[in-house]
């Protein structure tokens, strides 16, 4: 049965070259200085005001984005659960349609839409309404994040929801539960694996993003991702970049560990 193990070889090579070796390199650079001596300075650099602020802002915006995604996606999951049939597939198709377009393009489109003299303000102006000044603010970054990552919240929630046996819902009503009790005592706990994996799939890319903040933050909003990117590219300080990356990884691992505590069954979780 396991004779075909060699079939996994290409993947193993891929993961070795694409993940393991780069990760080891990051760890190596993270703990050395320019001369190659061991140091913790790259790690403790997170305490610098600029870095700590960027990390804090990244965590905050990612958290807001995750909450907004969850609040948008969960009702969609509930509605899709109730309405079976051909329309359901179409609605899911529409919801995940943005995923088919390149992520950079979508983000760039938002930049054009939200710009002070952009499409939205053009329409508002022609209606004699006040223009909105949202571009280059954290709100624009969150909007971009939500738009980009929402499908990753909807899909796992929808998948778990669709699998919940309708008999369980009927049994709960039969035992006297109100609609609210059914939601809190049956649907929510049973869809927890989907929620957890949705949160993971939204929070992790959101906290590490630098493209969205760069495009929609107009170079004024520095998230930890932007700092790391600049250390590697602009400043050529790959030691500091690696150190900060390691710190961010630790934060993500801690968040995931906390999340997994909620997920008793261990289904659906990614980390």
């Amino acid at each position: 049965m396991f004779k075909k193990k060699w079939l996994t070889a290409p993947y193993l090579v891929f993961i070795l070259c694409g993940t393991v070796i780069p990760l080891l390199a990051i760890v190596y650079y993270g703990f050395t200085d320019q001369e190659g001596h061991f140091t913790l300075a790259n790690i403790t650099a997170i305490a610098d005001e600029e870095h700590a602020k960027a990390l804090g802002l990244a965590l905050l915006l990612a958290l807001i984005c995750t909450v907004v995604c969850l609040l948008l996606a969960y009702p969609v999951g509930l509605i899709l659960r109730k309405h079976a049939g051909g329309k359901k597939g179409f609605v899911v198709f529409i919801l995940i349609l943005p995923m088919w377009m390149n992520f950079l393009l979508r983000t760039f489109a938002w930049k054009a839409l939200l710009a002070n003299n952009g499409v939205i303000n053009g329409i508002l102006g022609s209606l004699n309404l006040d223009p909105i000044r949202i571009i280059n603010t954290p709100a624009a970054v969150v909007l971009g994040m939500v738009y980009d990552f929402l499908p990753f919240m909807i899909l796992p929630i929808y998948n778990v929801m669709a699998k919940i046996d309708n008999n369980l819902i009927e049994a709960a009503y039969d035992l006297g539960a109100s609609g609210k009790t059914v939601l809190t005592k049956v649907l929510l706990p049973l869809s927890m694996p989907g929620i957890i994996s949705g949160i993971t799939m939204v929070f992790v890319p959101a906290v590490t993003t630098f493209v969205i903040s760069q495009f929609l933050g107009g170079g004024k909003i520095y998230l930890i991702g932007n700092i790391i990117e600049q250390e590697f590219t602009l400043n050529g300080n790959r030691q500091l970049g690696s150190g900060l990356s390691l710190v961010m990884m630790v934060f993500i691992l801690i968040s995931m560990a906390l999340l997994n505590k909620f997920d008793k069954n261990g289904e659906g979780s990614i980390v």
């Binding site: 046996d165 008999n167 369980l168 009927e170 049994a171 709960a172 039969d174 049973l190 008793k264 069954n265």
Partner: peptide, 12 residues
């Protein structure tokens, strides 16, 4: 109250 065909016990 109903006893359902596939039991419908709450798995959680």
């Amino acid at each position: 109250n109903t006893v359902f065909q596939k039991y419908a016990l709450f798995p959680h």
